[in-house]
């Protein structure tokens, strides 16, 4: 009789096999998968390059600015970069489907560029990184943030120092 109850249950619930190659696969939301990079939020501190155990992340200085490259074929999905990133510029998505043919091997890279800009105050060429103003008190307004961002690191420090803080 046990057989009959199992048979009835299997008829009701259907197969337990994952449908994947022929249907969608179950993916947990917090699965550690492919890395994405948001150049707008990057501070340029390069901590991710330093903590990456497999050296999958490389920064390079070019005439246009600083480039970011994360090689998915070297990344071990440990999540150190996301954990240490101070500005949430680097994220792990739950995309695990990275199987590719040999011809696509060297396209498996997440590329980003932090462009150069001219400082609005002194005219020096500097990277347009996100400013490190997490601990500024009181928090910067949006216009202040844009003004800080348009400056070079030295002028940024000067701007933050001379900022009027209501006591």
């Amino acid at each position: 009789m046990n057989f009959l109850s199992l048979f009835a249950r299997n008829l009701k619930s259907g197969p337990q096999v994952e449908a994947f190659p022929f249907g969608p696969a179950f993916t947990p939301d917090r699965l550690r998968g492919r890395i994405v990079f948001n150049a707008d939020h990057c501070e340029g501190c390069r901590i991710c390059e330093r903590v990456c155990p497999a050296n999958a992340i490389r920064f390079a200085k070019t005439p246009d600015g600083m480039t970011f490259d994360c090689w998915h074929n070297t990344c071990v999905f440990c999540g150190n970069c996301e954990f240490y990133c101070p500005t949430d510029a680097i994220h792990q998505t739950n995309d695990w489907n990275l199987a590719h043919t040999q011809a696509e091997k060297f396209d498996m890279v997440e590329h980003g560029l932090i462009p150069n800009q001219k400082c609005v105050e002194c005219g020096a060429t500097a990277l347009n990184t996100a400013p490190m103003v997490k601990n500024a008190k009181p928090p910067l307004s949006e216009t202040e943030y844009a003004e800080v961002r348009a400056r070079c690191p030295k002028c940024r420090a000067k701007y933050l120092k001379n900022r009027k803080v209501p006591s």
């Binding site: 190659p21 696969a25 990344c75 498996m108």
Partner: peptide, 30 residues
């Protein structure tokens, strides 16, 4: 691939079982 001609790559440390199945499906096509 310096020693053996590779056709399909399945990155991951380790890859998910579904990703390996996807790689095998690609290999079957080849």
């Amino acid at each position: 691939d310096q020693y053996i001609p590779v056709d399909v790559n399945v990155p991951g440390c380790p890859p998910r079982p579904q990703a390996i199945i996807a790689g095998v499906a690609k290999a079957i096509d080849i």
